[in-house]
Design a protein around this nucleic acid. Structure first.
Lengths: 197, 197
DNA sequence: TATAAAAATTAACAAAGGATAATTAATGCT
DNA sequence: AGCATTAATTATCCTTTGTTAATTTTTATA
């Protein structure tokens, strides 16, 4: 299922884990391909699945009554993606998860993975590190809303993920930053004209 | 160190844990009292400590160049408090943690706790649940910035923690919500005058 | 390449928010 | 209780953002 190159890659990514630790996980994983614009998790879905993004980009969005979409989350290659409603809150997903590009996932049943991780201290320790990392990410995003202006949040996003602007329409970046597409367009204009923010 | 009533309380709080699981943790914990206005973690501090708030309220804030304070976090009784800079990012705390009331903490050395948890699967599983819970909390706060207006965020805060308004000055609630105290005052006026949002 | 569709920009106006300062209210302290 | 300090509100003015709609640009596709 995995070739030598991939094994090397994952051993490096999950450093500290042995090949046998990894193979247990990979044996219960399967590859899933989502075409661009395809839906990975439908709003209302309740299947506890966790996926590693090998390639591509997934967007989670909320659908407003008037039909407008608000993007809550973008996840890309080498990140994990899951509905936190399903996994953490154990409720149907309030959001829809859509591929923005042709996307390849390594998908795993969360409950099965759980029991495997629970019985392997080394894997448990890694899960712990991953959770801490995701918590830090989320806290940093909260900070950006409290401490930064919309323009500063936009610049920060571009700095941290420069290719995002070529992979996701600005209108989705705008709602991700908590503003409207029109407002982001004005911010971009201000930035382009050398203005401070 | 703990009386029967407290043991009952903690067994219920950390349900699924045995008394022996708990005592191991409590034996390495010590009580710390912070008077109102006192500092728990100074900006720049690097001590890896984790505390359970038995009583009181802690505020984490950022100090701007002009002297203004921006509140990032409020934590109260029966919640854990730690500098995520120190614990997760392993860097000196960028924020100051200050008690808003006379506060009683059960404090533990994070590194010592870690090794104890690492060697006890039941405790590890609980740590995992706590991390998931904190992640959910943080994600929900991100959602509130993306999906709600400032007024809606304020009403949501009051609904989830009604006594907060009597325990923390509005100016701190304002910056916690990402707005200025003046703006919160206007929002309160709009709400009082029966307006929508 | 031509055409249709979607995205981005711009405009105009209204609403909300930020900055500053003055005023009023609440709180703390001796 | 009286006084000083701090918090909250209000006012003014200016900036930013939201809303809607028109226009331009880009992208996708026949």
């Amino acid at each position: 299922m995995l070739n030598t190159e991939e094994i090397q890659f994952y051993l490096h990514l999950f450093k500290g884990l042995s090949i046998s630790d990894l193979t247990g996980l990979f044996n219960m994983a399967h590859t899933r391909k989502i075409p661009a614009e395809g839906i990975y998790i439908q709003k209302g879905a309740f299947a506890p699945k966790l996926a590693f993004i090998k390639k591509g980009l997934i967007r989670a969005y909320h659908l407003k009554e008037n039909g407008d979409e608000i993007t809550l989350l973008l996840r890309w290659e080498n990140q994990f993606i899951a509905s936190h409603d399903v996994i953490i809150l154990q409720q149907p997903s309030r959001f829809t998860y859509q591929a923005m590009e042709d996307t390849t996932l390594l998908e795993i049943d969360y409950n099965k993975a759980q029991s495997l991780l629970d019985n392997n201290p080394k894997l448990s320790a890694h899960r712990n590190l991953f959770l801490l990392h995701m918590l830090a990410e989320s806290l940093e995003r909260v900070e950006s809303f409290v401490l930064l202006s919309a323009g500063e949040r936009y610049l920060k996003l571009l700095k941290e993920k420069p290719d995002i602007a070529n992979r996701v329409p600005d209108k989705h970046l705008a709602t991700l930053l908590g503003i409207t597409p029109v407002s982001l367009s004005r911010i971009r204009k201000r930035i382009a004209s050398g203005h401070k923010h």
